[in-house]
């Protein structure tokens, strides 16, 4: 078995203070992920997962099930309410990355993770050139050489098929598919061992979707990066993920090999999801 590159333990994220009724962790106190008594949203409850070297782990689930929240917590965009996450690059995996200082977090964010946001507006500076968008992550990692950064950015943008003459253009002028490809190039800029992909193809035309998926596949093959691939579309996950976890109301309800889950779904929600795909 390959080694684990990321281990998430009992991750929790709550929006709201909680109340005596809901804070005991009893799922029956909630309506889906929401406490009707105090209005607190339990976006994540006890989410645990392992990500192996050069593996693609799919995360599926309906809208609001907490998929983006998992990635946002790992990328430090959101402060989790509980739980831990371990990577080999931080204290040999002996301490949770959430206990790190601002500077440590920045280091991890820039060197260990690359992220593609569900909403490109969050992942890109829409009015800056695409080259500068790629360079941003390199600058953040401490690079101070314009020539080196420009070369690397051009190489990456070429890799994701942004035409040479458009590299100085701002992503605001680009189609959705192109914006996602710029995000992918940016995520790859510092050669991170782990990619966090949040709905990379959602909202794109089918033909554009296929191209972006091919790109992700190609990157995975060439660079053997580990990926957490979030999608509400089981079809996307089927195409890319070796293993899959299924989320519902902020909890993991099923996990296993993707093929197995597709052939023999156990949880009623997964069954519904799989049958709707057929």
């Amino acid at each position: 078995m390959n080694k684990i590159v990321l281990q998430v333990k009992e991750l929790g994220k709550r929006f709201g203070e909680g109340c005596p009724r809901c804070s005991g962790g009893d799922p029956t106190a909630l309506e889906r992920n929401y406490c009707p008594a105090c209005g607190t949203v339990y976006a994540l409850s006890d989410v645990s997962l392992d990500l192996f070297e050069s593996e693609v782990l799919g995360i599926v689930g309906e809208s609001g099930s907490g998929k983006s929240t998992v990635l946002n917590c790992l990328y430090f965009d959101l402060e989790p309410s509980g739980g831990e996450a371990f990577i080999a690059q931080y204290k040999n995996g002996n301490e949770s990355i959430f206990s790190g200082s601002g500077q440590t977090r920045r280091y991890i964010r820039n060197h260990v993770f690359g992220k593609v946001y569900q909403n490109p507006v969050l992942g890109l500076k829409m009015k800056f050139s695409s080259l500068a968008n790629i360079a941003e992550k390199m600058i953040a990692a401490g690079n101070r050489n314009v020539g080196a950064m420009e070369n690397r950015a051009r190489e990456l943008l070429t890799h994701v098929s942004i035409p040479h003459h458009r590299m100085k253009e701002a992503p605001a002028n680009f189609s959705g598919g192109m914006q996602q490809r710029v995000q992918i190039a940016k995520a790859l800029s510092n050669n991170p061992p782990i990619l966090l992909l949040d709905e990379v193809t959602t909202g794109l035309d089918l033909s554009v979707q296929a191209r972006v998926l091919d790109l992700v596949k190609q990157i995975q093959r060439e660079l053997s990066i580990s990926m957490l691939l979030v999608s509400h579309d089981l079809g996307v996950v089927r195409m890319l993920a070796d293993r899959t976890i299924v989320m519902l109301n902020g909890r993991v309800v099923e996990r296993g090999l993707t093929d197995q889950i597709l052939e023999d779904p156990q949880h009623p929600y997964t069954q519904e999801l799989v049958y709707s795909l057929l």
Partner: peptide, 19 residues
């Protein structure tokens, strides 16, 4: 400022050089 994260200032200069 608290984290001495000045990437943004360098990004502005980088963008000028690109443009």
């Amino acid at each position: 400022h608290a984290e001495a994260d000045y990437s943004g200032a360098y990004l502005l200069l980088f963008e000028q050089i690109m443009r």
